[in-house]
Design a protein around this nucleic acid. Sequence first.
DNA 1: TTGTAGGCGTTATCAA
DNA 2: TTGATAACGCCTACAA
Lengths: 343, 343
Amino acid sequence: MSGGPTINTIAARAGVSIASVSRVLNGLPTREETVRKVLAAANELGYVPNSVARSLKSRRTNQVAFAMADIGNPVYLAMIREIQPVLKAAGYRLVLHSTDADVGDEIDVLRSLGERYVDGLIMIPLRVTAELVTAITVARAPVVVIGSVPEGTAVDNVRTDSRSGLRLAMEHLHALGRRRIGFLNGPPDTVPGAARGAAYIATLAALGLPYDPRLVEVGDFYRLEGAQAAERLLARLAADGGAPGLDALMCANDLIALGALDVLRRAGLRVPEDVAVAGMDDVDLAAAAWPAVTSVSLGSAERGKAAAELLLDRLENGDRAPRAVTFEPRLVIRASTVGEETR
Amino acid sequence: MSGGPTINTIAARAGVSIASVSRVLNGLPTREETVRKVLAAANELGYVPNSVARSLKSRRTNQVAFAMADIGNPVYLAMIREIQPVLKAAGYRLVLHSTDADVGDEIDVLRSLGERYVDGLIMIPLRVTAELVTAITVARAPVVVIGSVPEGTAVDNVRTDSRSGLRLAMEHLHALGRRRIGFLNGPPDTVPGAARGAAYIATLAALGLPYDPRLVEVGDFYRLEGAQAAERLLARLAADGGAPGLDALMCANDLIALGALDVLRRAGLRVPEDVAVAGMDDVDLAAAAWPAVTSVSLGSAERGKAAAELLLDRLENGDRAPRAVTFEPRLVIRASTVGEETR
DNA sequence: TTGTAGGCGTTATCAA
DNA sequence: TTGATAACGCCTACAA
């Protein structure tokens, strides 16, 4: 009573052994009549196989975990939307982990693979410490990492070069005649924060523009923090010299750009006439904002899909060499840099 | 080798029985020295308990499923963001199901509860058929439904009255002097579509406004479909009489409103000067849009949290009576109805 | 073709 | 305090 029917219940009802029940249920060759009796009993009892018992025996759970910093981030959301159907089609369920970008949490998730509640893991670490890399390499289940990972780490990996992506956007701003290009970054101790910060400086040099630290502010990859960073930047520029001395704002992601947009507007600056704004990630929100935000697509959806496929492949072929899939960034030009007329 | 260490491995290593190992690992009273030996062995071997075996024995998986139409919908996303931490704090993992608003899929999920891979389910059905209700009542694990469910259905339930919510928005439009209030709805065979369609007509009557079917279009609850519906509406009005004859647009959700916003703008109509626009759900996007969209908050986050708590409560207290939690809709006034000046 | 029995990794009972 | 042993529900040799 406490649990539902099991193969024992069915066996008793059908007057056969549990082995026969199992055989019928798994489509193994069985005498016609036995099949009938078993199926009839299973039907009447509303039998559903217990996946836990099945997993214990088969050593496979048909579950895959996805670990990211925060589901609220539209980038991860775009990935999930691609990952989920791929996994579902292959018969896997999706288990979600939010790590709040905490390395400890991420390492916990990796360790928990030893509990064997999933067959594999797709993860997006934001801070790649040595300890994390170790945890990845000793993980008890296949792992696919979305994002950069130290050269030579033996793990399936899907990445986009955000450095060249940021460069695309900067070149675009430069081509529009902008010369005082500010930069709002996320935490520099994260992989994307470090990469984009370095790319900003490198691109300035490549464009022959001076690097002026007063044009740079650091916050976090969210809208609110982006707005605060923009406020600090404007306040400092005002204190420094009066005139904004700023004709473009490169933002390390779209959420920051959206926050900056509000602040600029409130400060009476027109976008893009006074200050052109560009972001990264090309999330839905960027296209929906007003003005729509020029952004660098890092192929979130494609990366998610590729990661899922990579993991599925490894689940069937555990000992192939680690593979790295790379996507090219792509500039999506919208009104926040070129204005309305081109729409 | 193939699997990780088990209590057998540890028992052998520590020179004790598996029963002792289990006792130590579960903190049951054991002799000091045995504890030491077992913990030492477990540490050296990097032992992690197998959750599948544990689940088989304990009949609990520490997993909860969440089933919704589409993770891309910001409403569900807001819910997940609340549900996840509540479950995590209680030691549960979250399994995600996307059903594409397909009743068959939802019934499949309910049936799959018999597989016992989760301890409970939170679901948001869009179309509540008799078959679905049956499936809910015979489900093999506790279910919490977010949304309306037929009177008397014995299931934990969290809801907001979207009828009175829509009425709030309509009264607001009316108070602003709008008299030709159009309506863009989602599929009328969904619970929210039906409720909001009925509420539109009822509210018109309550406001003493005539019901003009030419002001109503039906599409789906997404941005693209909302835009298409808005286009059809404008085209028909233009064909019918030339002048728009429309001074407000009530949208069944925010995504529809965002789509409509684009279309109105492209048609050269100013929002809100020519046409005021209101949506429902109060998703992030509504606040981020330009102009920001007046919306009716149906308490998505709160509903998610309440659902998770309701489920946790039932998991500890399986036989209490079904409970219904209700939230009041709340109007959030933004620029799309009152213009910029009030910001 | 069918049934018996052992094992997947844990927990829990019952003697010793 | 400890160790054998029996479940949990399923799959699968192996033997009949």
